[in-house]
Amino acid sequence: MQIRCRECEGRAIITTTNRLSNEFTRLYCACRTAECGHNFVMQLSYSHPLRLPSSKLDQQLVNQLRELPPERLEALLDALRQAR
């Protein structure tokens, strides 16, 4: 992620982060332009997913299915075939 200084449009770096939740973080930034040196705080927030569900959830489901006894797995597959 590239951070730009609001005052001079120069490059800035993130010096510290303060994660307040899974969806909100404060970024403490400093401008790298020597003549400016502006320090500021930006806020980073989660907006929305681009793909549902997460691939991680897919893998968790596969792992749970592998643990099912064969007869329960077959019954589940039959139910899925009928739902089509």
Rank of each mutant, 00 (worst) to 15 (best):
Y28S: 05
M1P: 15
C29G: 00
Y28Q: 06
Q60D: 02
D58W: 02
Y46D: 09
H48N: 13
D78N: 11
N18R: 07
Q2E: 12
L61P: 02
P70R: 03
A12S: 08
C29K: 00
P69R: 08
Q2Y: 10
E9W: 10
R6K: 15
S45F: 14
R6L: 15
P53Y: 07
R66E: 01
T33V: 09
T16D: 11
T15I: 09
R6Q: 14
R84K: 11
C31A: 01
C5M: 14
C29M: 04
E9C: 13
P69V: 09
Y46P: 08
V41L: 08
F24Y: 05
L52N: 08
L68C: 05
E74D: 11
R32S: 07
Q2G: 13
L68R: 01
C31E: 01
D58M: 02
L61M: 12
A79T: 11
M1C: 09
V62Y: 00
L80S: 08
E9A: 15
N18A: 12
A34K: 10
V62A: 01
S47P: 03
A75W: 07
C36F: 04
T17C: 03
A34P: 09
L76Q: 05
R84M: 15
S45V: 10
T33R: 09
V41N: 04
E23Q: 06
A79P: 05
E7V: 13
E71G: 02
I13E: 12
F40K: 04
L27S: 01
Y28F: 06
L68H: 00
L73R: 10
T17S: 04
E23L: 06
A83C: 12
P69I: 06
C29W: 00
Q59E: 05
A79D: 13
E67Y: 03
L20R: 07
Q43V: 12
L20S: 08
Q59D: 07
T25Q: 02
R72G: 06
R11A: 15
C31F: 01
L77I: 13
R11M: 14
C31S: 01
L20W: 02
R72L: 13
C31H: 01
R4F: 11
E23G: 06
F40Q: 03
S45W: 10
A75G: 10
I3G: 07
L61G: 00
R6F: 12
R26H: 02
M42W: 05
P49R: 03
R11V: 13
A34C: 08
Q59W: 05
R4L: 15
I3F: 08
C36A: 04
E9D: 12
H48W: 08
L76F: 08
E9S: 14
L20T: 09
R32L: 14
P49T: 15
G10S: 09
M1W: 07
